[in-house]
Each structure stands twice: as structure tokens, then as C-alpha cells.
Simulated scan of single mutants.
Amino acid sequence: MAIFRRILELDGTAGTDIHEVTGQVAEVAAASGLAQGLVSVFTPGSTAAVTTIEHESGALSDLRRLLEDLAPAAGEYAHNLRWGDGNGYSHLRAALLGPSLTVPLEGGRPLSGTWQQIVVLDFDNRPRRRQVVVSVVGE
């Protein structure tokens, strides 16, 4: 069993950034030279997440609205009282979606549905440079 790893870098703003990384993940999988296995997409930190969605304006708008309904940016959070950084909502949004995603690798390509794209969401309330660790494990 072999392991291949690359780190992607993403620049964010002070809003809910949604970075579509499907093509970059496929490039890492191809560069690995592996045919079958798993692809892991992971973002370190507690204010970002990884998931899949149809990357089109309507679905993205709906996702942003849902997250705002669940964890409003202007809400009251004990985290904000303790640290004074105002990003309590971003920690909750990240916790709801999680920091990683695992996708099967078949024929050297990550498997996905026709309208399913891999996205990294940056929820923090200040610009950040995010790392995304893409690991391919297989043979």
C-alpha cells in the first residue's frame, strides 16, 4: 500500500468562502500514480470544513442561507465572550460539516456523482490562508 500527499493553499476573505477544489484533488490523485484506494481531503483548523455540493450559484446561496440560519454570524456565543474574536459562529459551522472528506479512488480518479463537487468552506471572520491536505492511499 502506498501513500501520496500534497498540500493545496487557498486564500480566503472575511466571509463564508466556498472554494471548489474537485479539479485540484483529481490532479493530486493522478499525480499519485495510484489506481485504486482512497482520497482524503482534510483542512486543519477549527473554522473551516470540507464537503460536497453541486457547485452552482443557487445551491451555494441555499447553503450559505442554511448555515446562517443554523449559526448566525451576529449570534451570541460563549466563545466570543471568552476570546473576544467574534468568530464563534465559524467554529460551529465548521463543526457541523467537519474538517475532512474521504472519496473512493477508481482507475486513478476520485469517484463522484455528475453534479457533485468537492468544496472547502472557510467560515472565519478575517482573511486566512488555508491549507488543504490531499492524501491518496492505495495501490
Rank of each mutant, 00 (worst) to 15 (best):
A2E: 06
E9V: 08
E9P: 01
D11G: 12
G12R: 06
G12F: 06
A14V: 04
D17C: 09
E20Q: 13
T22C: 09
T22I: 10
G23T: 13
Q24S: 13
Q24G: 05
E27Q: 09
S32C: 05
G33V: 04
Q36F: 10
L38D: 02
V39L: 02
S40Q: 14
S40A: 14
F42V: 05
S46C: 14
S46K: 15
T47Y: 08
A49C: 11
V50I: 11
V50S: 03
I53M: 10
A59D: 11
S61C: 11
L63V: 07
R65E: 10
E68T: 01
P72K: 00
A73H: 02
G75A: 04
E76M: 05
A78C: 08
N80S: 03
L81D: 13
L81K: 14
R82S: 05
R82K: 09
W83R: 12
G84K: 08
G86M: 02
H91W: 13
L92N: 06
A94V: 10
A94S: 14
A95I: 15
A95F: 15
L96T: 09
L96E: 11
L96F: 12
G98Q: 12
S100F: 12
L101H: 08
T102Q: 15
L105P: 00
E106W: 08
R109T: 04
P110N: 05
S112R: 15
Q116L: 14
Q116M: 14
Q117V: 08
I118F: 11
F123N: 02
R126W: 05
P127A: 08
R128A: 03
R129N: 07
R130C: 08
Q131D: 03
Q131L: 02
V134T: 01
S135K: 06
V137D: 01
V137E: 06
